[in-house]
Amino acid sequence: MKKLIALLVSLMMIACVAMASAETVTVAFNPEYPPFEFVEGDAYLGYDVDLITAVAAKAGFDLEFEAMDFDAVTSAVMANPSYIGVSGISITEERLMNVDFSNGYINAGLIVVIKDGSGYATVEDLKGKTIGVQMGTTSDFAAEEITGAGNVAQYKTFLNAIMDLQGDKVDAVIVDKPVGLDILASLDDASLVIVDMGLQADWYGIEVNKENTELLEKINAALTELEAEGFFTELETKYFTGADVE
């Protein structure tokens, strides 16, 4: 009888180890944010997708992707230890209260999109103006600081903010630089211009549930390795410079 129990226990332990080795991590993200993440056909593509795929290969876990609104991503990671957030997420104090972040992997900067001829050149000019943003992004926080919460129009997607800029319903749109350049290139609307007002952005990081420190360490180790291999330069060539060409 004792032998049987011992056998069962050891079997269970083996099973646990086996399960741990085939760990599946779910990526919560908002694939409406080219070139970082977007949908083409039925495939998810983009800088972040390539990055996390490479990280997973190095760290030895399987990936599952779950698309959601951007403002739902952090909540999803908070609620599930097996979820990570990879969606162009800036590392901020507020988020750090709720989740852990990997080391930052890119700092792209923020740009301001305005209508040609509106003449906004500095952050001062935007005070009290209506600024369109994607809800919950760094741009959202930056806009709130510039013009006050009541004047920020928050959209589910950045594209909708740009469309209301075209329709004069907002005066300016703040967005992450690579994202803004990408969408403006595909819109090809001469009436929209980009202004760099020197807005400081935060580094993007990968969100990990506070309980899952083991995963966090694996991801950081993988990021360091990839950095050393020059993988990030590869990604930038693929998505930022080269990607301006469709």
């Binding site: 709720n98 369109g132 909708n160």
Partner: peptide, 21 residues
């Protein structure tokens, strides 16, 4: 959806600041 800050959006807004589920 069109960025009108009505009652649902107000909840959305708070959520985007507090990350409460």
């Amino acid at each position: 959806y069109i960025a009108l800050t009505e009652l649902t959006k107000a909840g959305d807004y708070i959520r985007s600041r507090t990350y409460s589920a």
